Amino acid sequence: MDAAGPLGHALVDRLLRRGYTVHAATYASCGGDEREEEEEEAAAALLSHLSSCGGDVDAYRHRLKVFRADPFDYHAIADAVRGCAGVFCMFNTPDDQAQCDESTVETEVRAAHNVLEACAQTDAMERVVFTSSVTAVVWSGAGAGTGTHGHEEAVADEKSWSDLAFCRKFKLWHALAKTLSEKTAWALAMDRGVDMVAINAGLLTGAQGLRLTAAHPYLKGAPDMYDGGVLVTVDVDFLADAHVAAYESPTAYGRYLCFNNAVCRPEDAVKLAQMFSPAAPHARSPPPPSDELKVIPQRIQNKKLNKLMLEFASGVYGELD
């Protein structure tokens, strides 16, 4: 959960291909009869995506059950995870800044609490893979990319956490929501004895039908992230594979920074900008040179994830699709 977004679709596809029975939970906005209609629509959307990916939809139907859950409804979440051996917990980010505010923070923290509590009460639960964000890592009290101690040469890694007061001060709601919800999940996992792994993902790209705009909450403060050498993106297929590896690898532990593209050169920044409006004239012609952008040293590393993916690929877990 939430299985309605691009990452959810990609994960459901991979899990079904690997033989799992999948409970695909999506967040409900209605109740009663309308909620049942939403379940049918969500199931149809998932099956349509699986069909477009070349999956055997008829073979999948008996192994796919769609649930509609409310992040504030513990019992609905508990129903969705009952009997499951693993949970992939993610919250789809709104597409624009106007939809991401303090209420988003409250929603994600409450949802994280309810999901982890439900997992703790599920006897069959083996591991929770919690999808967090790089924005929960890179914002220190001195800005982006300055490390946990404020030194310019510091490199952000799995030990780094975004500063809550800094995020509140500059209204970095996406970063605040991801940091607080992940901290909430870790606190409950440790208290309840839940085996949890966190994936701190870069800005999601590469998904079919993904609506990416410059107003995406992840990108608030993007110039500072660029200057700090911590502006990174991740392809949806790579991110889904990382989730599968984190779930199936017995050696997986703690947090993993997940990205496969670091935006550190002016041409990288231009390519990223062109994703926001691919139909615009500048996307069809070479952009003019920018005097404001310079090559920035990369100050974020994902060696831990690369090691996990290499071990997974060379292990006995089966090939990733």
Rank of each mutant, 00 (worst) to 15 (best):
A144G: 06
G141D: 14
A136G: 02
D123S: 14
V137R: 05
T122N: 06
A118F: 05
W139D: 12
S140M: 08
V129P: 04
Q121K: 09
E126A: 01
A124C: 07
W139P: 15
V138E: 02
V115R: 05
W139K: 04
S132A: 14
V115H: 04
A118W: 08
Q121V: 09
R127K: 08
V129D: 13
T122K: 07
L116A: 11
W139H: 11
L116H: 08
A144F: 03
E126F: 00
A120E: 04
G141L: 07
V138R: 05
E126M: 02
V128D: 07
D123C: 06
M125F: 03
V137K: 06
C119L: 02
A144P: 06
C119H: 02
A136W: 01
M125R: 05
G143Q: 09
D123R: 08
S133G: 03
A124Y: 03
V128A: 11
M125N: 05
A144L: 06
T122D: 01
A120P: 03
A120H: 05
D123V: 14
Q121N: 13
T135K: 10
V138L: 12
A136Y: 02
L116V: 08
V129Y: 13
M125T: 11
V115T: 02
V134D: 01
V134H: 00
D123I: 14
V134R: 00
M125Q: 04
Q121E: 12
V138K: 14
S140T: 15
V115F: 05
V128K: 05
G141M: 10
S140H: 13
G141Q: 13
A142T: 15
V138N: 03
A144I: 04
S132D: 14
R127Y: 09
V137H: 07
V138T: 15
V138C: 05
Q121R: 12
T131N: 10
A136E: 03
R127V: 01
G141R: 10
W139R: 07
V137M: 10
A136I: 10
V134S: 01
Q121A: 15
D123A: 13
G143L: 09
V129C: 12
G141A: 13
S140P: 07
V115K: 07
A144T: 05
C119M: 01
Q121G: 10
S133I: 00
V134G: 01
W139S: 10
S133H: 00
S132M: 12
A118Q: 07
V134L: 06
A144V: 08
V137C: 14
T131A: 06
V138A: 11
S133V: 04
V128I: 02
S133L: 00
D123P: 02
L116P: 04
A142K: 15
A136N: 00
S133Y: 01
G141T: 12
V137P: 04
V115Q: 10
V137Y: 06
V137D: 13
F130Q: 00
E117H: 12
G141K: 14
R127S: 03
A142D: 15
G141I: 11
V138H: 03
A142V: 14
A118V: 00
L116C: 09
T122G: 06
A142S: 13
T135H: 13
A118D: 09
S140I: 12
E126N: 02
E117P: 14
E126G: 04
A144S: 10
E126K: 00
M125W: 06
S132Y: 07
S133K: 00
Q121S: 12
E117S: 15
V134F: 00
C119S: 04
G141Y: 10
